[in-house]
Design a protein around this nucleic acid. Structure first.
Lengths: 182, 182
DNA sequence: CGGGCCATGTAACGGGTTACATGATTAC
DNA sequence: GTAATCATGTAACCCGTTACATGGCCCG
């Protein structure tokens, strides 16, 4: 559902290939959605079938040929309808397989649990370090920099950042409490 | 994957019916995983087929009959293997359909976006108010209160709380910034 | 007699993941 | 020559959602 509209929204900014979309997800949209390349191509096919986008082959000499997709009026309409739906009650729910493990960590030794939490914290720190250059990369996608769009891109990036920072802090606090136990 | 092991982990604490499991998810596990009742019953059937749990019918006079599930040695082994797998690199990734909408909110009017953000913030606040009684409810599930288990239950509840609080604060900040625009 | 809690399911669908599969071009 | 980047896909599977379906008991 969301991937479909994420792709549609990107193409709405301007013509894009599957590869471009994949790159966009790996940079600016990764803060709240991870998309597999293969999945993107599947969705592109579906969107084309629906008549929401149209693809045209582009010959390239210096690089492999590619297929550029543009949005149709129908596609734009569908996108705007999706966008106007608002937050919805389910917007608060989120899922974490890792937290499921922590919940049952009483079945492990404290050492094992601390190890798991440290691994998690490290993943968070790595993520934060790896992606300290959002503001730059975020402005590479989309054509109209003069509009309000980058403001919202920034908002979501901030959100993602904050969440991961919170995760790292939480893990840190857990580790300390566990190591402080008798 | 995770629901399967979540159910297994609960049954590992002691015999449970599908209804009991559903209640447990609606209280303590809701902070990081939402499970539909129908899905739980499907998973229970699968787990029984795999030989990880065994169900026995219990006649009740004052209430409808129920089926109590207990874990098998094989089930416990599978559960422990899953638990020992650690955090995994994917543990940082998370998905939010709502953030996808915010990302593209530049296509809406600022008023519409503010409305959406306020709805989101309200959902968060409602969630926090509705669930201020975790510490109590968390101790109702599981038999061995003397162990370290409640410590981890509390950790995950804290995590979920913190995330939702962070969401509310983030939304608040966005709203203020939007309303402060010329 | 209606609302809430207890209690258990089936069928169809869809979104997403995993694994597999290929190949051109550029820069070092 | 080999690694990185550009570029596009298929097939099988599985996890999860939505919608549907039922029914007893208790309390006010």
């Amino acid at each position: 559902m969301s991937l479909e509209y994420g792709i549609l929204g990107l193409i709405n900014y301007g013509k894009m290939s599957g590869y471009d979309i994949s790159k966009a997800f790996d940079s600016s949209l990764k803060f709240f959605w991870h998309a597999q390349t293969s999945h993107i191509y599947l969705e592109l096919k579906k969107l084309e079938k629906k008549g929401y986008i149209t693809g045209t082959l582009v010959q390239q000499n210096d690089r492999p040929n590619k297929k550029l997709f543009g949005i149709t009026d129908e596609g734009r309409k569908a996108f705007m309808e999706w966008l106007a739906q608002g937050a919805g009650a389910e917007s608060v729910q989120f899922k974490s397989a890792f937290m499921m493990r922590v919940f049952f960590a009483g079945n492990l030794s404290p050492e094992q649990t601390v190890g798991m939490l440290k691994e998690f914290r490290q993943n968070c720190v790595d993520f934060l370090n790896k992606t300290s250059e959002i503001p730059e990369s975020i402005n590479h996608y989309g054509a109209n920099k003069e509009t309000i769009h980058p403001f919202y891109w920034q908002m979501t990036a901030e959100f993602g950042y904050g969440i991961v920072r919170y995760c790292a802090d939480w893990a840190e606090s857990c580790i300390k409490r566990l190591e402080g136990l008798p």
